Simulated scan of single mutants.
Amino acid sequence: MITSILQSMLTPEEVQRVVKFIGYEDKARKFTVYHLLQYWCMAPLEQWGSYRSSVDYAAPCGLPVVHYSRFSTKAAEVPFSVSKELFHLLVCKCNREARRKLTFPKELLLIDSTTMTVGKTHLPWAPYHGERAGIKLHVALRAENGHPLQVVETLGSKHDGPMSEVLAQSDYILVMNRAYGKLERLDDFKTREQSFVIRLRDNVHLEKPHALRRLAKPDSSVIRDITCQLGTPQCRSRQRHRVVMFWDFEGREIRVVTDLMQVSAEQIAQMYKARWQIEVFFFCKNYQWNG
């Protein structure tokens, strides 16, 4: 786990650039400065007391195995300035983006749409409402960097719900509003192991709720954390889903449904709150278009 986190924070290429900047010549191939850094990160976690004990337990931890004398020699010859510069680089990377990457099991993909309308005479092939015509942009936005991953253009009358299936990506957690919360779609996402956090409509019935055990946290906005089936006997989800209820910053009760079971209710609420990034994205783009 530590080595995978380190890999996501500092790549071997970045470490090599720091080594080159300091002026240290790393001639080793089997035990480089990056390997030394991995050992240094793992040693305090595993409480290794010496170079010899470190190399004895290296293999089970996924580290390259070397003789303890090579480890001690490398540790002695690498300048302190290299470690200092790597530490500064690591601190600079400990920003909100990095914290979110380590906290959430997958990256968030925010899905929503925006409609641009004009007079009916300008786009006669795209009727919308009354004398207005319009086109709709369905956007999948990466929460990590605020960049669109995919954009699909449709007529303004196209419903948002089905487009979530087009924009879905199994490598991401989909975060969406109420327009995408059709019960059949939720069952399908769960069957396909497509992670999601979707706001429920206020009138969706919660059938046979079962409270999940959770550690109460001070100042938490979470109201309730349960599993249940969704809907009425006439239209009900086949599977049980997790539902988290919390207060938003304006004091309104929000209900979201998710397939994620190994994260806290507070994290689920934080994921949905990240959806505001796509609203800001649309506001900025609409301002540019209208300007």
Rank of each mutant, 00 (worst) to 15 (best):
Q234E: 13
S237E: 10
V243E: 02
R275S: 08
D259K: 02
V222D: 03
S221T: 13
D219N: 14
S237Q: 11
D225F: 01
R214N: 00
L260S: 05
K208D: 15
I268K: 00
G251I: 12
L212D: 00
V244M: 01
T227E: 14
L206C: 04
H241D: 08
E253F: 03
V222N: 02
M261I: 13
R240A: 13
L200G: 02
R275G: 10
S264F: 03
V222P: 07
H205S: 06
T227K: 03
M245H: 11
T258W: 07
H241M: 06
L215F: 12
A274H: 07
F246A: 05
D248T: 07
K217D: 05
S220W: 00
C235L: 07
A269H: 01
Q270F: 12
D219W: 10
L212C: 01
R213V: 13
T227C: 11
G231I: 06
E207Y: 14
T232P: 05
V256Q: 00
L206T: 09
P209G: 04
A274T: 07
I268T: 00
K217T: 14
T227Y: 05
M261C: 15
W247D: 12
R275F: 06
L200I: 04
D259T: 15
R255Y: 09
T258E: 02
G251T: 07
K208G: 07
Q270S: 15
E207A: 15
I254N: 03
V256F: 01
H241T: 08
K208N: 14
W247M: 11
R199P: 06
G251D: 07
R255H: 12
R242I: 00
H210A: 14
Y272D: 05
G231A: 09
R236E: 03
E266H: 12
V257C: 07
E266Y: 02
R255G: 09
E207F: 10
K208T: 14
F246Q: 11
R224T: 03
D202W: 06
D248S: 01
D248M: 05
G251A: 09
L260G: 08
A216N: 14
V257D: 06
P209K: 08
Q262E: 15
P218F: 07
A265Y: 02
P233D: 08
R255D: 00
M261K: 15
L215N: 13
Q234C: 08
L212Q: 01
P233G: 07
R201E: 10
L212V: 00
D225S: 00
S220E: 04
K273G: 08
R213G: 15
K217G: 10
E253Q: 14
Q229L: 09
L212S: 04
